[in-house]
Design a protein around this nucleic acid. Structure first.
Length: 275
DNA sequence: CATCATGTTATAAT
DNA sequence: CATTATAACATGAT
């Protein structure tokens, strides 16, 4: 599920255990989502510590515990966080459960594409501090976006938007939403895209998603592509034309063939880069 | 039974 | 070297 706003929502599900002591740590026997990490150290390190607070950055999560203990997480495709009853009995796909007196903090993930790491240190781990500028941060300047579009001028916009090094937190549905709102075809060469317009669309869509999905899992506006893009047979909420679906770099894209601007390059053989 | 899925990454091929 | 395609990961929903 999880893109930026969903990730933010999930990090907050553990708020029920904020300020609480971890009395017991339970790790799924397969330990698959820990990717070879030392789960014994994780369990021993977090037991007795206090859960302090969550951080979200794009699709990455970081949880701070007292004494300089950190838990980094990524939800993959089907990862989910929830707070359960303190007496929670782990279910089939519960990979990590932190028990406190107030709540059991659960990480659940059927497909196990998510991953978790534990570390100890006075400040947030190096990998966290090295993450690229967030799309709603000050550092996500027009110049920055211009630089990306120039550097990757021939790359189609859809895969560019999915690149976490450039647009952290943007996933498949948000990328389709951005392109649809800009009336751009997913194959539009990045160099042909206006940086200011792209930046504005990415930021307003992110802000609205954070205020709806991120806040209480409510749906973003019905006028968005969001609700209509999921399955084949959907219709454009703007012009009611049948939506089109296709594959780009292994991911499904959905767009409105009617709304797409005529000058947004549909044909990749057409010479792309300019400026 | 076959297909598809809101993600990432290693490896192969160009 | 940079870019792109493909497979792989593992499970559940349709």
């Amino acid at each position: 599920m999880p893109e930026l706003a969903e990730v933010l929502f999930y990090t907050r599900q553990w708020d029920a255990g904020m300020g609480q002591r971890i009395v017991r740590v339970l790790v799924h026997p397969s330990a698959r989502v820990f990717r070879g990490g030392h789960v014994g150290q994780l369990a021993a390190g977090l037991t007795g510590k206090t859960y302090q607070r969550p951080f979200a950055h794009g699709k990455n999560m970081l949880f701070a515990f007292s004494g300089g203990h950190w838990l980094g997480g990524h939800l993959g495709m089907t990862g989910e966080m929830l707070a359960a009853d303190p007496a929670h009995t782990p279910e089939k796909h519960d990979h990590l459960v932190l028990y406190t007196a107030a709540a059991a903090l659960v990480y659940r993930d059927p497909r196990m594409f998510g991953h978790w790491r534990y570390e100890k240190g006075d400040e947030a781990p190096a990998w966290w501090r090295a993450l690229p500028p967030e799309v709603l941060s000050r550092a996500f300047t027009l110049r920055h976006v211009q630089h990306i579009l120039t550097r990757r001028a021939r790359t189609p916009l859809k895969p560019l938007l999915l690149d976490q090094a450039f647009f952290p937190g943007i996933g498949n549905w948000m990328a389709d939403e951005v392109l649809w709102q800009l009336r751009l075809h997913p194959s539009t060469p990045s160099g042909a895209c206006d940086a200011a317009a792209l930046r504005a669309a990415v930021q307003t869509i992110t802000r609205t998603a954070v205020k709806t999905i991120g806040r209480d899992w409510s749906d973003p506006p019905r006028s968005w592509l969001f609700l209509h893009r999921w399955k084949a047979g959907g219709h454009c909420p703007r012009c009611h034309a049948a939506l089109e679906r296709g594959e780009f770099r292994g991911r499904t894209a959905c767009w409105c063939p009617q709304c797409v601007l005529p000058n947004s390059a549909l044909d990749r053989r057409v010479a792309p880069s300019r400026r």
